[in-house]
């Protein structure tokens, strides 16, 4: 097609692309590289070593980080699970209930957390929990995480749901399945790739969250991001870089999985 715009011919395209890539990825690469640096300095290269990784698991600070990692894991699993259930129900309702009053409003409400500045949500959560007299701790973090994970779980699930024709549920009911059986035996399995993808995404979003967590966590309760932040305030040591690199690895794995699962499902269903 002649009318197609070839971006690559735009003046400065290459330069801008390179700048973007450097700004985005150079810090990550530096952190990853220096996590293998055999020196306590974070600017001078002193040869390669795995000591900092050993330090993460056995060093003097390791119990603190392990507890934080465990908290992060518990919260991420529970929040992702709860958010996925709610998002699944919402996606089914939004695509199967036909047109109902307030449908646009519901859609906006589900996705609002994506638009609201995170710090506002954080402050609001804090005010809310203290207003209803909740003691800040693991539980408040869990609730806050569940809420902001819902839209992230919702997006892949509802995308999946939109591609599932309602004729499958009708076929199920035609074959004597009750509405409930049509849901559990037909619709749910067909939605599963979307649900998995959504839950992985919610998991990683919860695992990575710092801002909201920092507001609603109780004294002495740390997740991995808040623990790292706390440690950094006392000066950046290479073991922080090792932890960060590990988290980066976990994130990449989960995001990739989420994407793959969503894609496999799409190929299977025609």
């Amino acid at each position: 097609m002649a009318a197609k715009i070839d971006l690559r011919r735009f003046p400065g395209f290459l330069g801008i692309t390179l700048i973007c890539l450097v700004v985005l990825y150079a810090p990550l690469i530096i952190v990853a590289v220096y996590s293998f640096n055999d020196s306590t300095s974070i600017t001078n290269w002193g040869g390669a070593t795995l000591n900092w990784y050993v330090d993460v698991f056995t060093g003097p600070e390791s119990p603190k980080f392990q507890q934080a990692a465990l908290n992060s894991l518990i919260i991420a699993v529970c929040a992702a699970g709860a958010a996925t259930c709610i998002a699944t129900a919402a996606a089914v309702a939004m695509t199967r209930a036909g047109r109902f009053r307030g449908k646009t409003l519901s859609f906006a409400l589900i996705n609002l957390p994506l638009m609201v500045p995170e710090v506002v949500t954080a402050v609001a959560s804090l005010v809310f929990f203290s207003a209803i007299g909740f003691t800040n701790g693991l539980f408040t973090i869990l609730i806050a995480h569940t809420v902001f994970c819902i839209p992230f779980a919702y997006l892949p699930i509802s995308a999946r749901m939109q591609s599932i024709s309602d004729v499958y549920e009708q076929a199920a009911m035609d074959l004597y399945a009750t509405p409930r059986e049509a849901f559990t035996k037909v619709l749910l399995p067909l939605m599963m790739p979307g649900i998995l993808s959504g839950s992985l995404l919610a998991f990683i979003i919860s695992l990575d969250d710092f801002l909201i967590t920092n507001f609603v966590k109780g004294a002495g309760v740390e997740t991995l991001p808040t623990a790292i932040f706390g440690a950094v305030k006392q000066g950046i040591k290479p073991n922080i870089m090792a932890i960060s690199t590990l988290m980066l690895g976990v994130s990449i794995v989960f995001v990739t999985l989420s994407w793959l699962v969503g894609r496999v499902g799409q190929n299977k269903q025609k």
Binding site: V167, Q170, A171, D174, L175, P179, L190, Q269, K270
Partner: peptide, 20 residues
């Protein structure tokens, strides 16, 4: 009667076989 209580079965235009 709801569909699942009617002793009739349908061959759908696009077949609607359960893909899983």
């Amino acid at each position: 009667l709801p569909p699942h209580k009617r002793p009739v079965n349908t061959v759908f235009q696009q077949y609607a076989l359960f893909p899983h």
